[in-house]
């Protein structure tokens, strides 16, 4: 009984390891090649799908999150008479944590799931097999531009998230609650360091972009090509990406901002 259980656990671990290996091989195979003559065009196409189409959701969420931070920060700090520090709080929370994490979660839901479903459908309708028969490697043609587009898009979306969030906080704290505008920006500028805070946030964004896009493409590329298989793969993309984003966020935070 015990032996059986151990055996099951062992084979599961092996299975996970082998699929991790397969995912790594897929990533390397798709990237270790020069883009073809129309590579830029394909990349632009994917930047549109992955980046531009995620813009609105990022913009709106960032606005609301900035406003909530402004409101919460104000009510918390006003008790200590330090409400002018609200700018510092909004900016640091956003730049270091919330912008990369929330943007990556939204990105996984919006772009990641779409990538998985798209690749799964291409597989189900034999488009990938068909490419192969025309002597075109689907990893280079389909997977690579989508991966690179994800890598470029998410950091840009995070930068925009930061800025929109900071102005959302400004709207609530300064315009509505009457914190002095100079104090809002001044405290923020004194507290936020470009290379320590903004850049570390962007490194997080880059790591999350790799995780989400990679997961999404691998799940789509290897899914069972039926409608049920595609829907399961899409769910897995969102679940795995979200867990990885949160887990890696802790690791990265510990490495970047210390405390452990």
């Amino acid at each position: 009984m015990m032996f059986n259980w151990l055996q099951k656990l062992g084979s599961r671990v092996l299975l996970r390891l082998s699929s991790l290996g397969a995912a790594l091989v897929m990533l390397l195979q798709s990237l270790l090649v020069l883009p073809g003559p129309r590579g830029w065009q394909r990349l632009t196409q994917q930047l549109y799908v992955v980046g531009v189409q995620s813009f609105i959701i990022i913009f709106v969420s960032a606005g609301f999150i900035g406003m909530v931070l402004g409101l919460q920060g104000y009510t918390l700090l006003v008790d200590y008479g330090s409400e002018q520090a609200v700018g510092q709080m909004v900016a640091l929370t956003l730049v270091r944590e919330l912008a990369p994490v929330v943007a990556a979660l939204l990105f996984a839901g919006r772009a990641g799931s779409a990538l998985t479903a798209e690749l799964g459908l291409m597989k189900a309708t034999e488009q990938l097999a068909s490419l192969e028969m025309f002597g075109v490697d689907p990893l280079h043609r389909i997977v690579a531009p989508r991966f690179i587009a994800g890598l470029i898009s998410l950091p840009i979306l995070v930068i925009i998230f930061n800025l929109v969030g900071v102005y959302g906080g400004h709207l609530v704290a300064v315009e509505w609650l009457g914190v002095h505008s100079g104090a809002y920006w001044g405290n923020m500028q004194a507290a936020v360091d470009f290379s320590d805070d903004v850049m570390n946030g962007l490194i997080k964004a880059l790591v999350f972009a790799t995780l989400v896009t990679w997961t999404a493409l691998y799940q789509g590329y290897t899914c069972v090509p039926t409608s049920q298989g595609i829907s399961e793969a899409t769910t897995r993309t969102v679940v795995y990406s979200s867990l990885m984003i949160l887990g890696f966020d802790f690791i990265l935070t510990a490495l970047m901002f210390g405390g452990l």
Binding site: M122, T125, E126, Q127, S130
Partner: peptide, 12 residues
């Protein structure tokens, strides 16, 4: 070789 896949497999 040319292949005609079951679903046609046109690039959508």
């Amino acid at each position: 070789m040319g292949v005609l896949f079951q679903s046609g497999a046109l690039f959508t």
